[in-house]
Measured scan of single mutants.
Amino acid sequence: MTEYKLVVVGAGGVGKSALTIQLIQNHFVDEYDPTIEDSYRKQVVIDGETCLLDILDTAGQEEYSAMRDQYMRTGEGFLCVFAINNTKSFEDIHHYREQIKRVKDSEDVPMVLVGNKCDLPSRTVDTKQAQDLARSYGIPFIETSAKTRQGVDDAFYTLVREIRKHKEKMSKDGKKKKKKSKTKCVIM
């Protein structure tokens, strides 16, 4: 069974824990209790493949930012979460993405942009803004509501699919490099 290491990042209060708990335990946590770091595991079937999701729910508070490099190193894919009623959390996505790329030393890291709290009427981040940002990053965008469960499975499952595509691409690139290195030079 394939294991996928997913990391949920975003500013404090955007609903990272609520999304994760909704996926794992099928219930909505409405009281806000700032996370330092929590880890969850769940076995699911995605596109006919049974897999184990190892999900790291991270601290959004700035005082825990020193811990970010460590979990970013171990993560295979990242859910970059903002709240649709919090423009600052949307603007912060850029910083999370840049930090992930720096730590992973790669421009090509599996990510999904997630606009959470889409059940709320007080939207300050337009869907088109988020779609445009995701398009500019070359990553999928999904709106979710941890409260109603809308888009929750889709967000995590899409990230797994992005990781699969990335692994497939990397193995193809690896095979191309191996083929090239088999060419021999004969000096007579």
Rank of each mutant, 00 (worst) to 15 (best):
I100W: 06
Q70C: 08
L113P: 01
T124W: 07
L79P: 01
V114S: 01
R102G: 06
E63I: 02
D126F: 08
R102Y: 03
S122A: 10
Y64G: 14
M72N: 07
T74C: 11
P110W: 00
S89Y: 01
A83L: 02
E76G: 04
C80M: 12
M67R: 09
H95V: 03
S122P: 10
G77M: 10
E76I: 13
I84C: 14
S89V: 07
L113W: 11
G75E: 04
V114G: 01
E98K: 04
D105I: 03
E98T: 04
F90E: 09
M111D: 00
T74I: 07
D126E: 09
M67G: 12
V109E: 02
V125Y: 12
Y96S: 02
M67F: 09
G75D: 03
Q70I: 05
T124R: 09
V81P: 03
L120W: 08
N86E: 11
Y96C: 11
A83T: 06
K104T: 13
S65A: 07
G115I: 13
D105P: 06
E76S: 07
V125K: 08
L79H: 01
P121R: 08
Q70D: 14
D119W: 02
L79N: 00
C80A: 03
R68I: 07
C80V: 14
V114N: 00
K104P: 03
E76F: 11
H95L: 05
R68H: 13
D92A: 12
M111V: 06
R97L: 15
I84S: 15
Q70Y: 07
E91A: 05
R73T: 10
A66K: 05
L79M: 09
I93Y: 04
D108S: 07
F78V: 07
V114I: 12
T124F: 09
E63S: 08
D126K: 05
A83D: 15
Q99A: 08
R68N: 15
R123W: 07
D105W: 03
D108M: 05
V103T: 08
R73E: 13
R97N: 04
V125F: 09
V112G: 00
H95W: 10
E63V: 03
E76W: 14
E98M: 02
K88R: 09
M67Q: 12
P121W: 05
E91C: 03
T87R: 10
C118E: 08
I100T: 01
K101S: 09
M67N: 14
E76D: 15
G75H: 06
E98C: 02
V114K: 00
V112Q: 00
E107R: 05
D69F: 01
A83I: 01
